[in-house]
């Protein structure tokens, strides 16, 4: 079991307490391609932030690869994020004053990898994603799809066990959305990386093998979707 959540609660206290996650129990196996679906305000992003150790939870247990993620120091949390998790965000979150290749290199900088080595690796991953020609371009010189592929390359470069994607297609047109989802699917199938996608779009969720519905802070139905028939829309081919 790669990820195991037991009775996780999270309350935000901005003036008045807001109980966002109300006892989440969830298990995700190694190599799964899962989506977490829910309307806005359902707590899906909060759940993803807890999974990504970007945020902490109040009660319950979160086991990641056999380790209890609880009361970590910022340094430890940063180290886990760096080595085990790759993030893909809706708004790409590339550093605007760094070129594509420099952005991809950055996680390795924090691992203490030498400049030459990390440049080689970053170029390798950019090549894998078909961005070799764009290596020395700045984010504002690239299209949304290209930016998201750079972000995916950055997420992959540390060879993480999990990729957490928060609305990865939210800022992309439908054609590019399809490409990005195909890319994630390929990474899951070929490299065996566990991928968790948070989305509110049925079409995006349909591309994953398992759909976890979350509503009002509680896990609802968990759909097996190996045949990708959960949704009959036409957005995805």
């Amino acid at each position: 079991m790669l990820i195991e959540l037991k009775g996780v609660n999270k309350t935000y206290d901005n003036g008045q307490p807001l109980h966002v996650l109300k006892g989440i129990d969830l298990s995700i196996e190694r190599g799964e391609f899962v989506s977490i679906m829910g309307a806005s305000g359902s707590g899906k992003s909060t759940l993803l932030n807890i999974l990504g150790i970007l945020d902490n939870y109040d009660t319950g247990e979160y086991w990641l690869d056999g380790k209890l993620i609880r009361d970590l120091s910022e340094k430890q949390a940063a180290d886990y994020r760096n080595r085990m998790i790759g993030f893909v965000f809706q708004s790409f979150n590339l550093i605007s004053f760094k070129t594509a290749v420099e952005n991809v290199e950055l996680p390795l900088y924090y691992q203490g990898v030498s400049r030459k080595k990390r440049h080689e690796m970053a170029m390798e991953y950019l090549e894998k994603l078909g961005l070799t020609d764009w290596a020395s371009h700045f984010p504002n010189e690239m299209s949304g799809g290209q930016k998201q592929r750079v972000a995916i390359a950055r997420a992959l470069i540390t060879r993480p066990q999990i990729i957490l994607a928060d609305e990865p297609t939210g800022a992309l047109d439908s054609k590019t959305s399809v490409e990005v989802m195909q890319l994630l699917k390929r990474l899951n199938q070929e490299e065996g990386i566990t991928i968790i996608v948070v989305t509110h779009e049925s079409g995006v969720a349909n591309e994953t093998d398992k759909i976890i519905h979350i509503k009002d802070g509680i896990i609802g139905e968990i759909e097996e979707n190996k045949a990708h028939t959960a949704w009959d829309g036409t957005m995805m081919k």
């Binding site: 970007l54 340094k75 940063a78 180290d79 080595r83 950055l106 996680p107 924090y110 540390t158």
Partner: peptide, 9 residues
């Protein structure tokens, strides 16, 4: 961003 990809404080 730097923190999310592994920079410590």
């Amino acid at each position: 961003i730097r923190k999310a990809i592994g920079a410590s404080p």
